[in-house]
Write a protein that binds this DNA or RNA. Structure first.
Lengths: 211, 211
DNA sequence: TAGATTGTTAATCGATTAACAATC
DNA sequence: TAGATTGTTAATCGATTAACAATC
């Protein structure tokens, strides 16, 4: 693993999907897989798979294919899954609670360390043994606990302000569920989950069909 | 509005974002906007904006720009927002509940009509006045009520089977939150929200930064 | 009319696919 | 060794950006 520089975003977004299929192959004790076989499973061309993998180095073997365990382990490492990341949730409404209660994130290296809300009636409640704190403590919490990721699940109104606070406290990445485009410095990765825009896409496609 | 044929997917995915910004402009009583101004706001090039809009017809005016109300109304119509869509939720766990309780979907034309689960202890509960039914009634429900969209929020294990049932009952689109690639016929639009893959992307970018 | 800004064609850029020599 | 399949270069495809004539 040595090439990696300026990996195209589409490739990065395919990595978790590769991992998912390789995990399945690993669980069914498949030892090796060729780009052609994997392509059929995943609906990708063999060419694309080889190009993707070669962004990070050559871990295939001519005439053989790819060793499933090696590939899985390599991709997991590329994804940073050998690391643990600390995250907090801001806004423990519908989505915030869903994220808080979802236990699978821990298994892939993301540990929920704190929950924050502005609503006094929620402060003090516990979700999965994590207490809800007043948002006013965010800055000190992020700094002291060295939090990596903030998951923003509040109304769009306060979102930019909270985001600014998080950034100035040294947050390393933002996972945003608020329906707004947040302004963050270039060196703070931002990942949006815009549910309304997602369902609206379906609306468009449905509407198209009925033409 | 007449050109529209084979609109590229990237354009379609930008439509909800255009709508979001136009709504804001409309709320602040802005009458007109040029592709240059809008581009600055949205972080897009003026060229791209004009290309995007011209996929659907020409609703700008040379020397003037675009009328905000006209553009907003046109894009809303293109998105199918003058229609009402009926959707159901399958699996009322963490994510299912978040979707069920989220009231904003109704305002953009998506009405929750039913909730289904396999867990007897959840059947009969109500979320926003919608009762949870046993999954075994899905097929008859989809057919009788002419449901448009199914939001799949169950464990990946049963997801494909449920999906097949939905498709054979005439579901028109699938909104999938299960961490799996569902097999659907080409004419049934599928939109995935893969939260684990989303946060793993952040993990990758964080890991990259620390290099 | 003059200035502004669109609609649209052409150029560029980037990502995907194809081809094939290298090699296990 | 022969067959298979990679790694990699070249060709293609599609999306974005630039340029400019049309026109409000």
């Amino acid at each position: 693993m040595s090439k990696r520089k300026n990996i195209p975003m589409p490739v990065i977004r395919r990595l978790p999907k590769y991992r998912r299929y390789l995990l399945e192959l690993s669980e069914s004790d498949t030892e090796k897989i060729s780009s052609t076989e994997l392509g059929i499973k995943m609906g990708l061309t063999p060419s694309q798979i080889r190009q993707d993998f070669n962004c990070f180095g050559d871990f295939g073997q001519q005439g053989y294919g790819y060793n499933v365990e090696v590939l899985l382990s390599t991709i997991s490492e590329i994804l940073g899954m050998k690391m643990k990341y600390k995250f907090i949730i801001i806004g423990i409404g519908n989505i915030g609670q869903a994220i808080a209660k979802y236990t699978r994130f821990e298994g892939i290296g993301f540990e929920l360390k704190g929950i924050f809300d502005i609503n006094p009636s929620l402060i003090g409640l516990k979700f999965r043994n994590i207490e809800v704190y007043d948002v006013k403590f965010i800055e000190e919490f992020v700094k002291e606990k060295n939090i990596d990721i903030a998951c923003i699940c509040i109304d769009k109104r306060g979102a930019q302000q909270v985001c600014d606070k998080l950034v100035s406290s040294g947050i390393k990445a933002i996972w945003n569920f608020a329906p707004i485009d947040l302004n963050v410095p270039k060196d703070v990765p931002l990942e949006n989950v815009h549910l309304s825009e997602s369902i609206l896409t379906l609306g468009y496609l449905l509407n198209e069909k009925n033409k």
